[in-house]
Write a protein that binds this DNA or RNA. Structure first.
Length: 445
RNA sequence: GCAGCAGUAGCUCAGUUGGUUAGAGCACUAGUUUGUGGAACUAGGGGUCGGUGGUUCGAAUCCACCCUGCUGUACCA
């Protein structure tokens, strides 16, 4: 009987890849968001919000012969159409631009903050639900736009408390690999993609492993085998040699570096091993990398990788029809930035906690409420102890929520009109006239 | 998806070659203190030992399958 009952209890577990986020983290996130908004206004971007769900085909999820478009997205069927939770903010932007093409200004600059969902295996610091920040230029081919994005994200990170030496923007261009493929006469699209994905892993795996992936394939340390791009060893040598060059040769990179100079912006590096997985990039690509150590909850230093990146995608919006909409944009993973920022030693956000007014006798509630009103009118966070119980329990509560002080206003104090104020960090008590109370508390906070 | 490892209290874990009623620390509740938190002491609650089936006189322990998690790898439009 009892066992039966237990079995029917609802699960207290949360789904794989989803997390509860607590106040400490949320405050840092709010701080970052307020900085972002401020700077986006300064740079002249429009604020936009699009829905969490889109029709699956609108965001690039076509469902040829599948029952369910579940490749990486969460979907369900509504009446006859498939809907998917958005997996990024770029696809909805493309859809928005196509839908509103005639009304929007051209070029169109918009920024967006929003949760995105990915139906993928979560990893350390990677979840199935996370907050992204995106800023994009639509309808301009100018490298000034690409440059602005880099300068802007740098300003945001600085405003959030990072030093120039804490991060770097790495830039490259898809034109480099494109020209290489042309030169080597590699035409098969699938082969190109496999090669790009392999090159994207240089950071993590190193050149030796990447060369295996460009060739026949690679066995990882768990014994799993990954099929390679099957390029000839001659071609692989040429690719390695070409990508190890330290100076950019493509036109777009030369141009953006010149613009950086005009901005007096130096916090960037050319790195031809920056590839980025997405297929749709066509030109300049960049990544925002942190240079300080990030640790996991066991205190081990983990390879954190980039907190975001972006690049130029001149053909994406054309998928919706014939729009002249070359575009470039940046995405930042806010939760990852929050995680990293919380580890900076000098980074703390204080949240004022309420002064707790203890309850001795429910018949004196009017007195407590008056005190509470007085404090709140003075913009002091205050609350009457919200439960029932002895004074000890009330003190324990105040201690647990990090309250700076409690006010004791029992029979004797009410009679004399002088509440007792107890400082919870020193443990000292003081008797104060009601009109002095606000000042005494301000001394403590 | 593939591979390796692991699942014992809310959390971190111990549990000997299979052997009584499964333990510890932290956390929680109550008390020592009927008006005083962070320390101490005392007592207490809390477990289908991931699940199912099997081997056995006897299973947290051995076997099979399943589920879940972690790590690596792939995918990440």
């Amino acid at each position: 009987m009892k066992k039966e009952k237990k079995r029917n209890k609802p699960s207290k577990e949360i789904p794989l890849g989803f997390v509860d986020r607590k106040e400490k983290e949320l405050l840092v996130r709010d701080f970052i968001i307020s900085n972002i908004k401020e700077i986006m206004i300064k740079y002249g971007f429009q604020y936009l919000e699009t829905p969490s769900f889109e029709y699956s085909d609108s965001i690039g999820k076509f469902l040829p012969d599948k029952d369910r478009p579940d490749e990486g997205v969460f979907s369900f069927k509504d009446e006859n159409k498939w809907l998917s939770l958005r997996y990024d903010l770029t696809a909805p932007l493309a859809r928005y631009v196509a839908k509103n093409y005639l009304e929007i200004p051209k070029p169109f600059k918009r920024y967006q903050l929003g949760t995105v969902w990915r139906n993928e295996k979560p990893g350390p610091g990677r979840f199935r639900e996370f907050l992204q920040f995106d800023a994009d230029f639509v309808g301009t081919k100018s490298s000034l736009a690409d440059a602005e994005l880099c300068v802007m994200i740098s300003e945001i990170l600085t405003k959030c408390g990072l030093n120039k030496s804490d991060f770097v923007i790495k830039i490259s261009s898809r034109k480099i690999t494109e020209e290489l493929f042309k030169k080597l006469n590699i035409k098969d699209n699938q082969q190109k993609l496999t090669a790009l994905r392999a090159l994207d892993k240089i950071d993590r795996l190193g050149w030796d492993s990447v060369k295996e992936l460009l060739g026949e394939g690679r066995k990882d340390k768990s014994g799993d085998f990954t099929e390679g791009a099957n390029l000839s060893s001659n071609n692989i040598e040429i690719i390695e040699k070409e990508l190890k060059k330290k100076t950019p040769e493509t036109e777009d990179l030369i141009e953006i570096i010149k613009i950086f100079k005009d901005y007096n912006f130096r916090n960037f590096e050319f790195d031809s091993s920056i590839i980025r997985g997405l297929e749709y990039y066509t030109g300049i690509i960049f990544e925002v990398n942190l240079k300080f150590d990030v640790k996991n909850n066991k205190g081990q230093v983990i390879q954190f990788g980039s907190i975001g990146g972006g690049g130029r995608y001149d053909n994406l919006i054309n998928n919706f029809g014939n729009y002249d909409a070359p575009a470039t944009g940046i995405s930042i993973g806010l939760d990852r930035l929050v995680y990293a920022l919380m580890q900076k030693k000098d980074f703390k956000i204080k949240q004022s906690k309420p002064v707790v007014i203890c309850v001795f006798d429910n018949n004196s509630m009017k007195e407590y409420i008056n005190l509470q009103l007085l404090l709140r009118e003075a913009e002091i966070s205050a609350e009457i102890y919200p439960g029932e119980g002895k004074l000890k329990k009330q003190m324990e509560y105040a201690n647990k929520i990090n309250s700076p002080a409690v006010i004791l206003y029992g029979e004797d104090e009410i009679k004399s009109g002088k509440p007792t104020l107890r400082n919870l960090s020193t443990g000292k008590e003081k008797s104060a006239e009601i009109r002095e109370l606000v000042n005494e508390i301000k001394k403590i906070i």
